[in-house]
Design a protein around this nucleic acid. Sequence first.
DNA 1: CTGAAAGCGCTAACAG
DNA 2: CTGTTAGCGCTTTCAG
Lengths: 343, 343
Amino acid sequence: MASTGARGGRKRGPSIADVARLAGVSAQTVSRVSTGAEAVKPETRAKVLLAMEQLGYSPNRAARALRDGRYGSIGFLARRFDRTGEALTMDAVLRACEAEDYSVTLLSAHDTTSAEWEPAARRLQNQTVDGIIIMRAEGGAGDPLALPATMPVVVSDSRAHGRYPRVTTDEMLGARRAVEHLLDLGHETVHYLAGPEDSEPARLRTIGWRAALTDRGRATPEPIWGDWTPQSGYAAGSAFAADPTVTAIFCANDEMAFGLMLALHAAGKDIPGDISVVGFDGISLGRYSVPPLTTIRQDFPQIGRELVRMVLRQIGQTHPHSVPDSIVPLELVVRDSSAPPRR
Amino acid sequence: MASTGARGGRKRGPSIADVARLAGVSAQTVSRVSTGAEAVKPETRAKVLLAMEQLGYSPNRAARALRDGRYGSIGFLARRFDRTGEALTMDAVLRACEAEDYSVTLLSAHDTTSAEWEPAARRLQNQTVDGIIIMRAEGGAGDPLALPATMPVVVSDSRAHGRYPRVTTDEMLGARRAVEHLLDLGHETVHYLAGPEDSEPARLRTIGWRAALTDRGRATPEPIWGDWTPQSGYAAGSAFAADPTVTAIFCANDEMAFGLMLALHAAGKDIPGDISVVGFDGISLGRYSVPPLTTIRQDFPQIGRELVRMVLRQIGQTHPHSVPDSIVPLELVVRDSSAPPRR
DNA sequence: CTGAAAGCGCTAACAG
DNA sequence: CTGTTAGCGCTTTCAG
């Protein structure tokens, strides 16, 4: 019984041993050619390459991972993957990982309570990834995640302040910019459609909104609380439309702004004639709403690159979580949904 | 030199051997407890579980994968991951995989020529995944992908007709429904904003649009060709607005419809008063455009489930690619952007 | 420059 | 019910 016949086993691909046999050399010689680490005589190399070609050899990553304890993959942990922020960040993360020859493994934890997050994360611990990128840990209990101290981790958009290195945007500053833009246009004050209270970015944006108004001595009307969805934006829009004092609204994200604008429109309000609207995120469809939406744009590609850079930097470190936070800038994009009040 | 001291090695996690040592049993006993396959005496099991707990043991998947030639992961191959279709499908795929205890590894091939796709796919061949889901193989040369006959593959939304099993929607029927909806409202004919010509779904939707008109003996105006982006929709909208005969437009996807509607609006056209618009895909923001967009909705969660089901079914098969195609139904969703012509 | 040996962590097969 | 042995495919020693 030959050890590894062409079709004896299940359906494993050709191994280094198969190549070695065909090329008439030893296994390590094949390995040397494969890794390119040590020198090999050109003739031998050619023989090996030929054999690899004929067999369609490609190295078995599981074996490699087992050997050197690294997986060549980083985990991307999020609650959902179908929202704009997640999708854009993930796309950017993937590109950045590819550049470094890492792959991306998706992990989801639909709930952020430790009851769900921890197993999901633990499962990864010694399993398939060399590091974890955690996205938007909103919702759930206060202290969701406890990963081993040696696991490289970076968190985006979360409340993990002080526990794990983070890549964040300056949410407060972004909110400020939105509010100041509207005040500069001449609005007396700026009403606010907030994100869910259990979300850290939402919380920070609220603080920024309030601070900007307070700093200029303006009244701070009671915000309406949404949940990031356009549905909740629609509800808020109907409420705001009933209040004739409202001339400017800042929405904590673009998708709520979409719903809000539709509700205002349905209530017969002109945007920006009667009411100005500013969003947050810079989703691509925001350029094509009616009217096009003024917003605070996040640089998602940059966020993705930073996330990857920060995880990779931790690999092999003794105290991986000590790398400094990174802050990615935001940009005010002025479109047609904001204008001076009609007066 | 003790074999595996607490902190001697790099930073591998505790192994089965470590647990065995601590629990005072053999490695396989630990393995038995871990897999739950064979019977173990309650006392022994308790000892083992305790040791696992203390050490924070979790099985090393690389080793497991090496042993039994399976990886517990399926690959998701696409050109981009930041578009609605990809994001929604991926989210669904991930959920379906979790239910089956598989993880998802992302793969991207930015170009669809074999020069890029094949290496990307080959790299996976014996590496990290047990199967591959290929998404939207639009663009590129005619014969992009050649995977080994034993690799489970399923293709979504692609021209792989006859080569690999597919999960598709009935694009032609969907387009028909959109056109018939508009004709039923009383429009003489339906103008068309098509997707890129190198996309198979776009091609099929065009055929469906044309067939629906022809079947009712209506004129088939020259379509305008877009590229799926709202930008291209805007350009088309400007062109259509200049043609006073246009009363109804079918857009090959929702995002182009957004751009188109903005352009119509900018040109002073009322939707649906002057021109009715119907999209395709059913993206969530379509409910909140101004006006809300009538569309052909794809059931992305269902598509994701089918994709996973069809890959998993192939695993272990001798002729994996012989599983039958799956067709996921589409649904007409009528909103405010379509109405009878003014007349 | 090339070959032989050993072991990463796991589990199937075979004893006991 | 439990222990021993062996080997998955790879690469890092160490010898030639």
